[in-house]
Amino acid sequence: MTDVWPIVHAERDALIADLEQLPAAAWDTPSLCAAWTVHVVVAHLVDTALTTRVGFVAGLARARFDFDRQNDRGVRRHRGATPAETLRGLRSVAKRTTTPPAPLDSRLVEAIVHGEDIRRPLAIARAYPQEAVERAIHLQSRTPRSFGGGKELLTHVRLSATDSDVALGDGPEVSGPALSLLLVLTGRAVALEDLEGPGLEPLTAELR
Rank of each mutant, 00 (worst) to 15 (best):
I112A: 01
P144Y: 10
L154R: 13
V109W: 03
P144S: 12
R135L: 12
V157M: 08
L139I: 07
T98L: 08
E196F: 01
L90M: 13
F67A: 09
T143P: 14
R79L: 14
R62W: 07
L108T: 01
Q70E: 11
S180I: 00
S175N: 13
V42D: 03
V184I: 14
P129A: 05
V75H: 12
A10Q: 13
R135G: 03
L50N: 07
A161R: 08
T143Q: 10
V8F: 07
P103D: 12
D47K: 02
L104G: 01
Y128T: 00
G59M: 07
T51Y: 00
L60M: 15
R91T: 10
P83V: 06
A35E: 14
E173P: 10
D28W: 00
H156T: 10
A14K: 04
E116P: 05
P177E: 07
L104C: 00
D68A: 15
T155E: 12
E196I: 01
V133Y: 02
L179E: 14
A43W: 02
P6H: 08
L179S: 09
A191V: 01
R120W: 12
L87S: 12
A25H: 10
I16H: 15
I112E: 02
T99A: 14
T186D: 02
A127G: 05
R62F: 07
G89D: 14
A14Y: 07
E85D: 12
V166L: 15
E20H: 03
L122H: 06
W36C: 00
D105I: 00
G199F: 08
L182C: 03
A26G: 04
L159F: 07
V4K: 09
R120L: 11
H39L: 10
T86G: 04
G199P: 09
E110C: 01
T204D: 02
L159N: 10
I7W: 11
D170Y: 07
R158T: 15
T51F: 08
W5H: 12
E201N: 00
V109S: 02
A35R: 10
P198A: 11
G55H: 05
L195I: 09
L50H: 14
L183Q: 05
E173Q: 15
L203G: 02
P23R: 03
A43F: 04
S160E: 14
W36H: 01
V93K: 04
G169R: 13
T2K: 08
D72F: 06
R62C: 09
R53W: 02
A111P: 00
R91N: 12
D170N: 13
R126V: 13
R64G: 06
T52F: 02
V166Y: 05
V75N: 10
Q70L: 15
T204E: 03
A61D: 01
R88P: 07
A167W: 05
L122P: 04
C33W: 03
G187V: 03
R145N: 10
M1T: 08
D68G: 11
L19Q: 06
A25P: 02
V4I: 15
A17E: 10
T162K: 04
V93F: 06
R142W: 11
R145F: 11
R188L: 08
F147C: 09
Q140H: 13
P172L: 09
L87W: 07
E173K: 11
G59W: 09
A161D: 08
